[in-house]
Design a protein around this nucleic acid. Structure first.
Length: 199
DNA sequence: CTAGAGATGGGCT
DNA sequence: GCCCATCTCTAGC
Protein backbone atom coordinates (compact mmCIF):
# COMPACT_ATOMS: atom_id res chain seq x y z
CA UNK A 1 0.00 0.00 0.00
CA UNK A 2 1.35 3.45 -0.91
CA UNK A 3 0.66 6.59 1.09
CA UNK A 4 -1.73 7.77 -1.62
CA UNK A 5 -3.59 4.46 -1.52
CA UNK A 6 -3.83 4.85 2.26
CA UNK A 7 -5.22 8.35 1.75
CA UNK A 8 -7.93 7.03 -0.56
CA UNK A 9 -8.87 4.35 1.96
CA UNK A 10 -9.02 6.82 4.86
CA UNK A 11 -11.29 9.04 2.74
CA UNK A 12 -13.73 6.22 2.06
CA UNK A 13 -13.70 4.17 5.27
CA UNK A 14 -15.61 4.51 8.49
CA UNK A 15 -13.38 6.00 11.18
CA UNK A 16 -13.22 2.75 13.17
CA UNK A 17 -11.89 0.96 10.08
CA UNK A 18 -9.39 3.77 9.52
CA UNK A 19 -8.15 3.33 13.07
CA UNK A 20 -7.71 -0.42 12.52
CA UNK A 21 -5.83 0.27 9.28
CA UNK A 22 -3.38 2.61 11.04
CA UNK A 23 -2.30 -0.09 13.51
CA UNK A 24 1.18 -1.26 12.52
CA UNK A 25 1.90 1.85 10.44
CA UNK A 26 5.13 3.80 10.99
CA UNK A 27 5.09 7.32 12.41
CA UNK A 28 8.15 9.42 11.55
CA UNK A 29 9.20 12.73 13.15
CA UNK A 30 12.49 14.67 13.09
CA UNK A 31 13.30 13.06 16.47
CA UNK A 32 12.73 9.43 15.50
CA UNK A 33 10.15 6.89 14.40
CA UNK A 34 7.88 4.27 15.87
CA UNK A 35 5.52 1.45 15.01
CA UNK A 36 1.95 2.40 15.95
CA UNK A 37 0.71 -0.14 18.52
CA UNK A 38 -2.49 1.42 19.86
CA UNK A 39 -5.16 3.75 18.43
CA UNK A 40 -8.70 4.97 19.15
CA UNK A 41 -11.41 6.18 16.78
CA UNK A 42 -13.43 9.34 17.41
CA UNK A 43 -16.41 10.47 15.36
CA UNK A 44 -18.55 13.58 15.13
CA UNK A 45 -22.19 14.42 15.77
CA UNK A 46 -23.04 10.80 16.69
CA UNK A 47 -20.14 10.32 19.11
CA UNK A 48 -20.61 11.96 22.54
CA UNK A 49 -17.01 11.06 23.44
CA UNK A 50 -15.60 13.19 20.64
CA UNK A 51 -14.45 16.79 20.88
CA UNK A 52 -16.33 17.29 17.61
CA UNK A 53 -19.66 16.16 19.12
CA UNK A 54 -20.98 19.70 19.56
CA UNK A 55 -19.86 20.84 16.16
CA UNK A 56 -17.03 22.78 14.65
CA UNK A 57 -14.94 25.19 16.76
CA UNK A 58 -11.50 26.72 16.11
CA UNK A 59 -9.95 23.86 18.06
CA UNK A 60 -11.81 20.99 16.36
CA UNK A 61 -11.76 22.42 12.85
CA UNK A 62 -9.12 19.93 11.55
CA UNK A 63 -11.46 17.02 12.37
CA UNK A 64 -13.89 18.40 9.80
CA UNK A 65 -11.20 18.77 7.12
CA UNK A 66 -9.62 16.39 4.61
CA UNK A 67 -8.47 12.89 5.60
CA UNK A 68 -4.87 12.06 6.37
CA UNK A 69 -3.97 15.32 8.11
CA UNK A 70 -2.79 15.96 11.67
CA UNK A 71 -5.23 17.07 14.36
CA UNK A 72 -3.14 18.07 17.37
CA UNK A 73 -4.65 19.46 20.54
CA UNK A 74 -3.53 20.36 24.07
CA UNK A 75 -5.13 18.84 27.15
CA UNK A 76 -4.78 18.46 30.94
CA UNK A 77 -2.51 21.50 31.07
CA UNK A 78 0.52 19.51 29.91
CA UNK A 79 -0.05 17.17 27.02
CA UNK A 80 -0.30 17.25 23.24
CA UNK A 81 -2.42 14.59 21.55
CA UNK A 82 -1.82 13.47 17.97
CA UNK A 83 -4.72 12.39 15.76
CA UNK A 84 -5.01 11.53 12.07
CA UNK A 85 -8.12 12.88 10.42
CA UNK A 86 -10.42 10.35 8.75
CA UNK A 87 -13.13 10.42 6.11
CA UNK A 88 -13.91 13.43 3.93
CA UNK A 89 -17.65 13.46 4.50
CA UNK A 90 -19.50 16.32 6.15
CA UNK A 91 -19.13 14.87 9.62
CA UNK A 92 -15.93 14.93 11.67
CA UNK A 93 -13.65 11.96 12.41
CA UNK A 94 -10.12 11.25 13.56
CA UNK A 95 -7.92 8.50 14.99
CA UNK A 96 -5.96 9.16 18.20
CA UNK A 97 -2.46 7.64 18.34
CA UNK A 98 -2.14 6.23 21.87
CA UNK A 99 1.09 4.20 21.88
CA UNK A 100 4.05 3.07 19.82
CA UNK A 101 7.15 0.92 19.76
CA UNK A 102 10.44 2.77 19.09
CA UNK A 103 12.10 2.04 15.75
CA UNK A 104 14.76 4.77 15.53
CA UNK A 105 15.98 7.77 17.51
CA UNK A 106 15.93 5.85 20.78
CA UNK A 107 18.54 8.04 22.49
CA UNK A 108 16.82 11.26 21.44
CA UNK A 109 13.50 9.94 22.74
CA UNK A 110 15.07 8.98 26.06
CA UNK A 111 16.53 12.45 26.54
CA UNK A 112 13.11 14.00 25.84
CA UNK A 113 11.46 11.63 28.32
CA UNK A 114 13.82 11.93 31.28
CA UNK A 115 11.09 10.76 33.63
CA UNK A 116 10.64 7.44 31.84
CA UNK A 117 11.83 4.66 34.12
CA UNK A 118 12.38 2.19 31.30
CA UNK A 119 12.37 1.90 27.54
CA UNK A 120 8.84 0.57 27.86
CA UNK A 121 7.73 3.91 29.33
CA UNK A 122 8.86 5.97 26.32
CA UNK A 123 5.81 5.76 24.05
CA UNK A 124 3.14 3.92 26.08
CA UNK A 125 0.58 6.72 26.28
CA UNK A 126 -0.62 9.47 23.94
CA UNK A 127 1.05 12.29 25.88
CA UNK A 128 4.30 10.35 26.30
CA UNK A 129 4.43 9.57 22.58
CA UNK A 130 4.14 13.20 21.48
CA UNK A 131 6.70 14.28 24.07
CA UNK A 132 9.20 11.62 22.97
CA UNK A 133 8.78 12.40 19.27
CA UNK A 134 8.73 16.19 19.66
CA UNK A 135 5.17 16.60 18.37
CA UNK A 136 3.24 19.75 19.28
CA UNK A 137 0.93 22.35 17.74
CA UNK A 138 3.47 23.31 15.06
CA UNK A 139 2.39 20.24 13.08
CA UNK A 140 -1.36 20.79 13.44
CA UNK A 141 -3.19 20.31 10.12
CA UNK A 142 -0.05 19.04 8.36
CA UNK A 143 -0.60 16.43 5.62
CA UNK A 144 0.69 13.22 7.24
CA UNK A 145 0.59 11.26 3.99
CA UNK A 146 3.34 13.30 2.35
CA UNK A 147 6.74 11.79 3.25
CA UNK A 148 8.41 15.07 2.30
CA UNK A 149 6.94 16.66 5.42
CA UNK A 150 8.78 16.59 8.77
CA UNK A 151 6.02 14.50 10.33
CA UNK A 152 4.45 11.71 8.30
CA UNK A 153 3.05 8.19 8.31
CA UNK A 154 4.10 5.16 6.27
CA UNK A 155 1.37 2.53 5.75
CA UNK A 156 1.65 -0.87 7.41
CA UNK A 157 3.07 -3.57 5.17
CA UNK A 158 0.38 -5.99 6.22
CA UNK A 159 -2.99 -5.04 7.64
CA UNK A 160 -3.34 -6.38 11.19
CA UNK A 161 -5.77 -9.22 10.76
CA UNK A 162 -6.95 -9.66 14.33
CA UNK A 163 -6.46 -6.51 16.41
CA UNK A 164 -7.29 -6.63 20.11
CA UNK A 165 -10.41 -4.51 20.57
CA UNK A 166 -11.43 -2.67 23.75
CA UNK A 167 -13.48 0.31 24.88
CA UNK A 168 -11.93 3.76 24.70
CA UNK A 169 -9.92 5.13 27.62
CA UNK A 170 -10.81 8.07 29.83
CA UNK A 171 -14.42 8.71 28.84
CA UNK A 172 -17.01 9.66 31.48
CA UNK A 173 -20.43 8.03 31.81
CA UNK A 174 -22.70 8.70 28.89
CA UNK A 175 -19.82 9.73 26.62
CA UNK A 176 -19.68 6.54 24.57
CA UNK A 177 -17.58 4.76 27.16
CA UNK A 178 -18.89 1.39 25.93
CA UNK A 179 -18.08 1.93 22.26
CA UNK A 180 -15.38 -0.63 21.29
CA UNK A 181 -13.21 1.74 19.28
CA UNK A 182 -9.81 1.08 20.91
CA UNK A 183 -7.54 -1.09 18.76
CA UNK A 184 -4.31 -2.71 19.93
CA UNK A 185 -1.60 -4.49 17.92
CA UNK A 186 -1.70 -8.15 19.06
CA UNK A 187 2.03 -8.68 18.46
CA UNK A 188 3.03 -5.71 20.66
CA UNK A 189 0.46 -5.81 23.40
CA UNK A 190 3.21 -4.97 25.92
CA UNK A 191 3.82 -1.69 24.05
CA UNK A 192 0.38 -0.27 24.75
CA UNK A 193 -0.78 2.20 27.36
CA UNK A 194 -2.64 1.52 30.60
CA UNK A 195 -5.19 0.50 31.51
CA UNK A 196 -4.56 -2.99 30.27
CA UNK A 197 -6.92 -4.19 27.56
CA UNK A 198 -9.76 -6.39 28.79
CA UNK A 199 -9.85 -8.48 25.61
C1' DC B 1 2.22 -4.39 41.61
C1' DT B 2 -2.22 -1.19 42.42
C1' DA B 3 -5.17 2.88 43.55
C1' DG B 4 -5.68 7.70 44.49
C1' DA B 5 -4.83 12.41 44.02
C1' DG B 6 -2.46 16.65 42.41
C1' DA B 7 -0.55 19.26 38.66
C1' DT B 8 -1.64 22.27 34.92
C1' DG B 9 -3.72 25.57 31.36
C1' DG B 10 -6.65 26.07 27.18
C1' DG B 11 -11.46 25.68 25.50
C1' DC B 12 -16.19 26.19 26.16
C1' DT B 13 -21.40 23.76 28.19
C1' DG C 1 -16.20 28.07 36.64
C1' DC C 2 -15.98 23.50 35.01
C1' DC C 3 -14.29 20.09 32.02
C1' DC C 4 -11.03 17.44 30.38
C1' DA C 5 -9.22 11.49 24.56
C1' DT C 6 -3.12 12.49 30.76
C1' DC C 7 1.19 11.84 33.52
C1' DT C 8 3.65 11.31 37.69
C1' DC C 9 4.28 10.63 42.40
C1' DT C 10 3.11 8.64 46.74
C1' DA C 11 1.31 5.25 49.92
C1' DG C 12 0.20 0.77 50.71
C1' DC C 13 0.15 -4.08 49.73
Amino acid sequence: MTTEELRTMLCEMRVEDSAHLLLGATLVSPIGSCLITEVEAYGGADDPGSHAYRGITPRTEPMFGPAGHAFIYFTYGNHWMLCITAHDREDAAATLIRAGKPLSGLEEMKSRRAKAKSEHDLLTGPGKLTQALGIDKQYNELDLLNPKNELYILPTKEVIKYPVIDVRVGLAEGKGEHTPWRFLHPDYIQDTSLPRPRI
